[in-house]
Write a protein that binds this DNA or RNA. Structure first.
Length: 463
RNA sequence: GGCGGCAUAGCCAAGUGGUAAGGCACGGGACUGCAACUCCCUUACCCCCAGUUCAAAUCUGGGUGCCGCCUCCA
């Protein structure tokens, strides 16, 4: 498999540190609000990367943190006159609700900053000992110019950064580029004891410390949104490599932005939609479909129209699967799978993997699944063998599972609804179309859509 | 100013040297009591100019347009 590595600005063959295993860290949310669809992109993209790595046989240790100590959380807590812990715990719960809706699986570990302060302090101590950090009256800063490779991820030289740096108000720092590792306690803020007095961790250090604690000094893949490249990930490299003297991450993978009217969606611009808001109008699986229909590194525009398109596309996939299930349940042909379909299933699998191997080309992979759907729709019917039908259903589920799509398989119908369908069939037989249409409308009210096909009545639930 | 990305049909989008996947929408047809689903058919001077090559959407150079990072941000 090839992955685009921000460190080298090139697609590279993925080679894990340890054969058969992948250590992967992805920057998680700051839990002070519902997350927006810009935040949702990395959750979905890296969930797919993780699923694919597992699909091709790796054992993946996947760590995604919760930033639960932060200015924005503190501000929210003050505004609501509650404890900041209350705010972060609440939005961690809300995170899981939305993530579940998006089909994002739980990481192996979801560490919180507040549970890892000890590890953070240890790492800062190491940096201070090595002369890479300094304490000024209870605030500890990273001495950026001491880390020679600073800028290697974002491809910026220290001189460029110097000239671009805005005038610092903070006169404590030796250099404007230096950033905080430990922040001195202020009234009303959460705090921990440290060698430098009461205080709390800075933002960047948490990922370095937690990545090291849960995955070790060197990891395979570090992921996040492109906007984290600088300064966050640059700083992580400075901290982790400064402390360990070893390479921090072999592959840096960054997803592109979500735009609104071609402009970046961001909390500061206020032009964002939370996933929670979108859930009022769409099943969240549609959001996932939308995200995966473009390559993860390209910017995508978000709009209601595009959501409608994705919804229709997803619908097509569900229809194809429902047809397969229906035929499979009703097939009277018990022949085993044919050579033809055995071969075709392998070809679809191969093409799917080729797309995914090429830097997680989900749009290309979806194209393969749509080809499979069309093939199944057109070449399988009531005379097809159960052998063929089940092989096609298996490969369809196998491939859609990797993308985390088409997961809502229909359950058995209630007896009441079954009865209504039978009554309608009787009415149709008697050409009593007024009654049959009435029953169909009633079922629609209950969220069941009927389709009369040559093979019989099919039904599905409305999304 | 420094660094980086993008430009493919009405909309979305794959394709990095061999003659344009796929989805949505639109139009025509088949099927159907109607509808839905499904199927078939139809729909592209690959932003512009020049160059390299037997061959370029793909490579090189130059334009034009849009976006991002350099500051909290996925």
């Amino acid at each position: 498999m090839k992955l685009y590595n921000t460190l080298t600005n090139a697609k590279e063959k993925f080679i894990p540190i340890e054969e058969g295993k992948v250590k992967m860290y992805v920057c998680g949310p700051t839990v002070y609000n519902f997350f927006h669809i810009g935040n949702a992109r990395p959750f979905i993209v890296f969930d797919v990367l993780r699923r694919y790595l597992e699909y091709i046989g790796y054992q993946v240790d996947y760590v995604q943190n919760f930033t639960d100590v932060d200015d924005k959380i503190i501000n929210k807590a003050i505004a609501e006159q509650v404890d900041s812990k209350e705010v972060s715990e609440r939005f961690i719960e809300e995170y899981y609700k939305d993530a579940d809706g998006l089909g994002v699986r739980r990481a192996t570990v979801h560490p919180k900053v507040s549970d890892n302060v000890e590890a953070i302090i240890e790492m800062i101590e190491t940096l201070v000992e090595k002369g890479l950090a300094y304490n000024v009256d209870g605030n500890v800063y990273y001495r950026v110019k001491k880390f020679e490779e600073y800028g290697k991820l974002s491809k910026q030289s220290l001189e460029d950064l110097d000239s671009g740096a805005r005038i610092e108000v903070n006169e404590e720092k030796e250099d404007p580029l230096d950033f905080a590792l430990w922040k001195k306690y202020k009234e009303g803020e959460p705090w921990w004891d440290s060698p430098w007095g009461k205080g709390r961790p800075g933002w960047h250090i948490e990922c370095s410390a937690m990545s090291c604690r849960y995955l070790g000094e060197t990891i395979d893949i570090h992921g996040g949104g492109q906007d984290l490249i600088f300064p966050h990930h640059e700083n992580e490299i400075a901290q982790s490599e400064g402390a360990s003297g070893k390479k921090f991450a072999n592959y840096w993978v960054h997803n592109g932005y979500i735009n609104i009217n071609n402009e970046k969606m961001s909390k500061s611009k206020g032009n964002f939609f939370t996933v929670r808001e979108i859930a009022e109008d769409f099943d969240l699986e549609v959001v996932r479909m939308f995200m995966l229909s473009a390559h993860y590194r390209s910017p995508v525009n978000f709009s209601r129209e595009l959501m409608e398109q994705s919804k229709a596309a997803l619908e097509r996939l569900y229809n194809a699967r429902n047809n397969l299930v229906f035929l499979n349940e009703n097939s009277k042909n018990s022949d085993p799978v044919s050579k033809d379909w055995e071969k075709k299933a392998q070809e679809y699998r191969k093409k799917f993997k080729e797309a995914m191997d090429d830097d997680i080309n989900t749009a290309g992979a979806l194209g393969v699944i749509f080809d499979l759907a069309r093939d199944a729709n057109s070449s399988l019917d009531e005379n097809s063998s159960r052998g063929d039908l089940s092989v096609v259903l298996e490969i369809f589920d196998e491939l859609t599972d990797v993308l985390g799509l088409v997961k809502k398989h229909r359950e058995l119908l209630d007896e009441e609804i079954e009865n209504m369908i039978e009554q309608r069939q009787a009415a149709r037989k008697n050409k009593d179309f007024a009654l049959s249409d009435k029953i169909r409308d009633e079922l629609k009210e209950k969220g069941i859509i009927l389709e009369d096909t040559r093979e019989g009545v099919k039904w599905k639930k409305i999304n």
